[in-house]
Amino acid sequence: MIYERRLAWSVLFRLFHWFFALSIVALVVTGFYIGDPWTNTTVIKEGKIFTMEYMRYVHFIAGFVFTGAVIVRIYLWGAGNRQEKIMDFLPVTSRNLKNLFSTVAFYLYLKDNYEDRLGHNALAGLFYLITIVMAVLQIISGFYMFYPESSFWQSCGLLLFGTQGQGRFLHHLFMWYFILFAFVHFYIVVWNDIRCQDGLISSIFNGRKFRPKKV
């Protein structure tokens, strides 16, 4: 079979992916410290290291990067290329619903062939949508805590989460979604890269996938 290399992901999409991924790493690491900090007294007596302040600073910077990345992805849902548009992967059309079931069967080793797609398969697309929804909730709960004296964020937070305490709790719980997602995402990408021929992993760096060439 002859393959051709075709552009799947725009530069903006790839930038979104990497800023999103790296900000999540920074947010989770600093978030764990903020949630359960170690005590400096046991390490240094006369601490002039503002550990918590530094961790929070990194957390906030990463939070803004994360917010920017999510805004870019939502923008690309409507304005991106064909693969990046939301209707290309959301399992609401018959094409995508069919793809959802065939992908599940493929992942469960029930069938060996898969539908060749340049963009996301419908299962991945569904979870990417859930991830962006979770990210938006995470951003709102984050800004609820970041701007405690803003009546706008207070209204949003009270409506969606309840008091600051509940917002904080949910912010922490939502973090676990991103840890789990990263874990599963990583496995499925590697699994796909081994089983399929489209060069999935390199596509997020160079934007190109391999497709069977129509003769």
Partner: peptide
């Protein structure tokens, strides 16, 4: 003390 990471355990 919070900002400098000093806590009562």
């Amino acid at each position: 003390h919070f900002d400098e990471g000093r806590f009562a355990d």
